[in-house]
């Protein structure tokens, strides 16, 4: 089973003569359980690809099948439903400043009407323990270090057991040591749980966590040899 199957995917911004094509007829498959890194220079279309896989942008041309859901011609409702089955990790942690670490993580569970509050908080706490923040569950993001915040964000991205985790430059706001540690943690947790991870990054120091590295240039994929 593949977490992501992309065939003939193209994307462009604008229309008419000024239209800018950023993705050219892409094919990409990410099997379930793999950790895949996407590298490439700025403007190569990596982020656009990530937002298309994350159902944050409408697919224009081609097929993009994520966790079994075809995103070509998908309506907003379908995309929202799919997003609930994806874990997102951003360049900046984007935690809610007015919520504690545990409440932030529990936010990923509040969309599941089958869970009650006690269950949400218990799962959030267990996830924070897994990322090594057992003693920070009641801390607000403002008092956490950059690395701790990103670990809370990882816990939030994993806690609802998503089929796919998407990360965009997750180490950009961290120093190299913390960045590497954080990504090793993400990779370990994903592997333990059999999660699929797709990371867009410039950071060559985290290449070692990948099962596969995909490079992108001018809107086209170059698939280098496995790391």
């Amino acid at each position: 089973m593949n977490a992501v199957e992309i065939r003939g995917l193209s994307h462009r911004y604008g229309s008419g003569p000024t239209a800018l094509t950023v993705l050219h007829d892409l094919d990409l498959t990410i099997p379930s359980g793999e950790v895949v890194l996407l590298t490439g220079p700025s403007g190569s279309g990596k982020t656009t690809l990530l937002t298309l896989i994350g159902a944050l942008r409408a697919v224009q041309t081609g097929s993009c099948r994520v966790l079994g859901t075809e995103l070509a011609n998908a309506d907003e409702r379908t995309r929202v439903a799919l997003r609930r089955r994806i874990g997102f990790i951003f360049q900046h942690h984007n935690l809610l400043g007015f919520l504690t670490a545990r409440e932030n993580v529990a936010m990923a569970l509040e969309l599941d009407p089958d869970l009650d509050e006690a269950e949400r908080l218990a799962r959030a706490e267990a996830m924070l323990r897994a990322v090594g923040l057992a003693d920070k569950v009641d801390a607000y993001p403002a008092v956490l270090s950059g690395g701790q915040r990103q670990r809370v964000a990882i816990a939030r991205a994993l806690v609802h057991e998503p089929g796919l985790i998407l990360a965009d430059e997750p180490t950009a706001a961290l120093d190299s040591k913390t960045g590497h540690e954080t990504m090793v943690l993400l990779q370990r947790l994903a592997k333990e749980r059999g999660r699929t991870v797709f990371i867009v990054t410039h950071d060559p120091r985290i290449h070692d966590i990948a099962d596969r590295i995909v490079a992108m240039e001018d809107g086209r994929l170059v698939e280098p040899a496995p790391h």
Binding site: M1, R195, D211
Partner: peptide, 10 residues
């Protein structure tokens, strides 16, 4: 490709 333990079937 070797994909270790795809424990979560989609």
């Amino acid at each position: 490709r070797a994909s270790p333990a795809p424990a979560t079937p989609a």
